[in-house]
Nucleic acid binder design. Structure first.
Lengths: 199, 199
DNA sequence: CGCATTACGAAACCTGGGTTGCGTAATACA
DNA sequence: TGTATTACGCAACCCAGGTTTCGTAATGCG
């Protein structure tokens, strides 16, 4: 059942990703050197490029391994559920922020990822699909809350989630302010109460 | 009054910035080549590096020239004013999106800028200051609206503006959906009505 | 066993950002 | 007029991402 020729050394993937992750973590994206990874992993550069066609692809692969596909929980309390989901997103962002090297106001890692998605068609497709999944989950959550009467009938679910998720990204990338549970609660309060059905 | 030595050729700045802008516009950030700019501008590479210490700095300088410092208008109608201001921000984003090369779902130019701000301390400081100014303007606008009774007393102005601006950036960078006047209106409707004082 | 197929390693190479050193041109000042 | 100062151009150079070529090792298949 395995393909025809010589099989790939599966240990290489693991070793390289671990090395690359470490390198990104303590020296940032710019500090990730393909030559150095290859040398430390004990493989030739060509072997790396056979698996990840560019440095961007390798970096994306590193980040992708960190992102546990966020599960959404629906407890029936839309407010708590949204805060929970935002916190998961924030956790991912904070993780990437750490991966950007020295922590600081603006998170280079997220920016590099956005740039990489713009540079390479396939990476762009990949990340867009991932965000589409997340978006669909959130919209479904909101939809269910509306169906059971927690939210106003005429609310704009798309705009609502854009605001919540967008505020997190805005903070991380632009203002550099922290994104934590307290902020998630502020956001949901600010954005949601309006859309709650009035008693 | 001029400094001691040989004066700088001021025409160089203008010529280089125009060339660089054109190059970024139709080939994207990666398509901006320092060597090529120097050659087409008829100057040595060292002359370029004397003015802009890295390619990032040159690109930021190009983008900075495009950003007319957005003025805020206070007509007394917070809803209309916010839509207006968001539209100005969106215009800037769309401009940069165009500058990212081929228009597409994710805007590389914004991502590159965020990444550049993370790479270079001075660029980060610069952009953070600019965003702080914008933020202060918006918060003051909201504050005035609250003072005259258009908004609830207990609203979270910081969270509100993060949501509005963040949603724009989220769309441009992540989902790639268009940001236009219609979307600005949807956002303000979704975010603001809750905070309006109830009749 | 022999062959097609695929993976690997090594080396040379190209490209573009970024640096360095040096000789020269333009200005202020004495 | 001469000197310190700064800008400029030129050429060589380093570095890292990325590519190409080629010889070799490991598998499946007939």
């Amino acid at each position: 059942m395995p393909p025809r020729g010589r099989p790939r050394d599966t240990q290489v993937d693991e070793r390289v990703l671990r090395l690359a992750a470490a390198m990104i973590f303590d020296r940032g994206y710019a500090g990730l050197s393909i030559d150095e990874v290859a040398e430390q992993a004990g493989v030739a550069k060509t072997t790396l490029y056979r698996r990840w066609p560019t440095k961007d692809h390798l970096a994306v692969a590193v980040v992708a391994r960190l992102q546990a596909d966020d599960e959404i929980t629906d407890t029936g309390d839309i407010r708590a559920d949204l805060v929970d989901y935002l916190e998961k997103i924030a956790a991912g962002l904070n993780h990437m922020r750490a991966a950007g090297g020295r922590e600081g106001p603006s998170a280079g890692a997220v920016g590099e990822l956005v740039a990489a998605a713009a540079r390479h068609e396939d990476i762009g497709r990949l990340t867009r699909e991932q965000y589409a999944r997340r978006n669909a989950l959130a919209l479904a959550l909101i939809e269910r809350a509306r169906a059971r009467g927690e939210l106003r009938d005429d609310l704009d679910a798309g705009a609502l989630f854009d605001q919540l998720a967008g505020a997190l990204y805005y903070r991380v990338m632009i203002t550099g302010a922290p994104v934590d549970r307290a902020y998630a609660q502020r956001l949901v309060s600010s954005a949601l109460e309006r859309n709650l059905t009035c008693p």
